[in-house]
Design a protein around this nucleic acid. Sequence first.
DNA 1: GATTTATGTTTACATGCGTAGTTGGATAGG
DNA 2: CCTATCCAACTACGCATGTAAACATAAATC
Lengths: 123, 123
Amino acid sequence: MAIERISESEYAVIEPLWDKAPLTAVEIADRVAKDNDWTLQTVKTLLSRLVAKGAVAFETQGRRYLYRPLIARNDHAVAESRRLLDRLFAGRVSPLVAQLAKRDALSEDDIAEIEALLKELRA
Amino acid sequence: MAIERISESEYAVIEPLWDKAPLTAVEIADRVAKDNDWTLQTVKTLLSRLVAKGAVAFETQGRRYLYRPLIARNDHAVAESRRLLDRLFAGRVSPLVAQLAKRDALSEDDIAEIEALLKELRA
DNA sequence: GATTTATGTTTACATGCGTAGTTGGATAGG
DNA sequence: CCTATCCAACTACGCATGTAAACATAAATC
């Protein structure tokens, strides 16, 4: 039941499905076109790879193929984040935050948000 | 001056050099052997790829090749983290923390550490 | 009914990665 | 000197990825 690893390009293709599903390949390609310059063929290839990986399913409605995601955006994001934390920060979050802080990669707003978050957690 | 992207296996090979440098290929292979089951040849290949990417340099001392890192561990970690944050969390840290919290991936200690860190930041 | 259109499937091809064998040159030991 | 050894460089090969053309098939249109 582990989440199948999906590539960056595949991610770009599943993303529209997280905003709205189901969608056809053409609809997905249209939405993806804002950020990427792929042909429809490329989007279809990525879709079929996502289907092969069990990350996306389709149902055929007559001639239309309607795609929908099988994994949740947040599940993917968390899985990837854990991978990174494990690899680079011994699995812990605070060293990551510390490094980013040291590089001035944390705005005042970021800090305030995280603090509010944590305060709520221990409430 | 962008940091060259290095692969996971390459990372395992450069890691010993961050602890101690310079080292020979054999010394690196020994240290890497704790976590990976690679032949010496594999380690050498990874080393040469790191050299090609400008992440590692060597100096030859007679017959000995001594390797040393050209990039800093933290620079690499921060670059990778930014990539992930940009891709998955619109470049912001708090949504990452929020997700991890929601998944119970934050221990009491983690939370306390991060809070201490942030408090210090605004001091 | 024949042809164009829509849509997925198959095949392709370059690049990067993980993993390692083979080669060639320097060197140390006899 | 010659040979065995040590080392890096070169070559290799399968798999994933990024990108897409070619192919097949069903449907819509004329």
